[in-house]
């Protein structure tokens, strides 16, 4: 291996492979960004890899009260867009907080406490990772209708929590299992109770795992499409992922607008990858391999 890397052809090959991987991963996102900054008329011409003239009019359509389209003032989509953005944020954050809280405390019980049926329950919960969400969607739909939870934050959050809890639980259990028990035992000898020890000693030590679970849950919730497509029929809870494709159903497909909305929708995930990449990758690796 080493001799291969140190040779020149090997090195050139590695560099080419890196360029290819970066172009494959970032190319489409870059192209979307360029499109969102290109004037509508230029979108109909030959594409150029760099916008010759930068415009913010697609973003203005999303943010302005009214906007100009071919010389006419038109109603902007800001009311819908802002509502959907708020819905995306609210449901994703709620799902993340509830999921991580339940997983943080629940996983502790699965690792450190003895209770009947412990292992069976854990296996049953984690096994649902292999059950696709749509298998339970139809009964869930009827259940949510009877509970009057269709198109409510509570309903959406509950569904997200039930879908993402197994992964978070799995992650947090592996975090606690890797933790030495001696610290907790020292606290118990000092007279600290279980709950006090859990909150003040165990949870702070488990912070990287908590962050990883939170990121994975947030990303999953933020990207959800099929669940809100069924359970969020109106703008009361409709998220960006359901709203943005609806821009297609106007008389023509406004690709500038859709790409601008798409770029805005990927800002939270991009920020997470930029700043918390370490936790994200460790979470993915732990979740996938343990």
């Amino acid at each position: 291996m080493r001799s291969l890397i140190s040779t020149l052809p090997g090195r050139v090959g590695t560099v080419l492979a890196v360029i290819l991987l970066v172009a494959w991963s970032l190319g489409p996102i870059y192209w979307s960004l360029v499109t969102s900054l290109t004037p509508p008329l230029h979108l109909l011409g030959a594409p150029s890899l760099w916008p010759h003239q930068i415009t913010f009019e697609h973003y203005a359509k999303l943010f302005g009260a009214t906007s100009l389209s071919q010389g006419n003032a038109v109603q902007s989509v800001w009311p819908q867009f802002s509502a959907a953005l708020a819905n995306s944020l609210i449901t994703s954050v709620l799902a993340t907080v509830v999921t991580v809280a339940i997983a943080a405390f629940g996983a502790y019980a699965f690792v450190r406490l003895e209770f009947p049926g412990r292992d069976l329950l854990f296996v049953a919960v984690v096994a649902t990772l292999a059950i696709p969400a749509y298998t339970v969607m139809i009964p869930l739909y009827r259940l949510m209708i009877s509970l009057k939870l269709i198109d409510t934050y509570t309903g959406i959050t509950l569904i997200y929590v039930s879908a993402f809890l197994p992964l978070a639980l799995w992650l947090m259990r592996s975090v606690y299992q890797a933790m030495p028990i001696s610290l907790e035992e020292a606290a118990w000898l000092d007279g600290a109770g279980r709950v006090y020890t859990l909150v003040h000693i165990v949870l702070p030590l488990a912070a990287p795992g908590l962050i990883a679970s939170a990121i994975l849950t947030f990303l999953n919730a933020w990207g959800q499409f099929m669940v809100p497509l069924v359970f969020s029929p109106t703008l009361a809870t409709k998220p960006l992922t359901v709203l943005i494709p609806e821009f297609v159903t106007r008389n023509y497909i406004d690709f500038g607008l859709m790409n601008a909305a798409g770029i805005l929708a990927i800002i939270p995930p991009v920020l997470l990858v930029l700043f918390l990449n370490r936790y994200l990758v460790s979470g993915l690796m732990a979740g996938a391999t343990k």
């Binding site: 991963s25 990207g223 992922t241």
Partner: peptide, 9 residues
Amino acid sequence: VLPWCLPPV
């Protein structure tokens, strides 16, 4: 990892 993190839609 970035493409995996973005909404599929």
